[in-house]
Amino acid sequence: MEASFVAHLQQQHPELMPRHVESRPDLMEATTITALKFSDGVVMVGDRRATIGNRIASSHMEKVFAADSHSLVGVAGVAGIAIDMARLFAVELEHYEKLEGTQLSLLGKANRLAALVRGHLGHAMQGISAVPLFAGVTPGTRDAKIFSYDITGGRFEERNWQSIGSGSPYALTTLKRLWSPEATSHEAIEASLQALIDAADADAGTAGPDPVRELYPVVYVVTGDGVNKIAESVIADLVIGLEGKH
């Protein structure tokens, strides 16, 4: 694994790798993340809430990230592990790109993420788990893909939509209902926001948009042209437009 940053850390700096915890203390948890395909790519949306037990620990946490120029990663589960996983994954992809002079293929990126999840199996067996949702586009072919994972590192390609986290069962029904192969990115963002609002209605661990405190879900779009984070002001306008639809 010449070009793997994770392998380099494991061999040379094992102290920087995430550690095992013996018993399960009360930990900060998150979330609902959704990924929805549209005509040109994928929209990924994540809420901003993190909880410890039944207490809200944070209302402005970000759980969706650009992994590199053409892929997105969203994380659910124990926040500390989840955020570290996303950060390490982004360095892993950039490290490969710089060493090899070319980006990993989309499937290659998805497989590397699976290896990171598998590395956490020990944690997961103790109930301290985090799983990612991965979406990306191959720049040349503009082919979009969504991948979900289980705690053993199983990697599953999804067809057109997926959601992870405690609010995912509710979000999934809305995504399924609103998905359309011809949708524009605007329509896909609207559909994803509706799914998130439905999840927040039913799940205590998920927060909907909060116009009073100006806290809105994090929205990323990835197409053949690259990753784009949607500005909060745009999301605020979309949320106002959704009134009465759910």
């Binding site: 940053f5 850390l9 040379q12 920087l16 950060r87 360095v91 490290h95």
Partner: peptide, 11 residues
């Protein structure tokens, strides 16, 4: 050099 800087930036 890439290993050195990526490791420092991550740590």
């Amino acid at each position: 050099g890439i290993r050195y800087t990526d490791t420092r930036g991550y740590a």
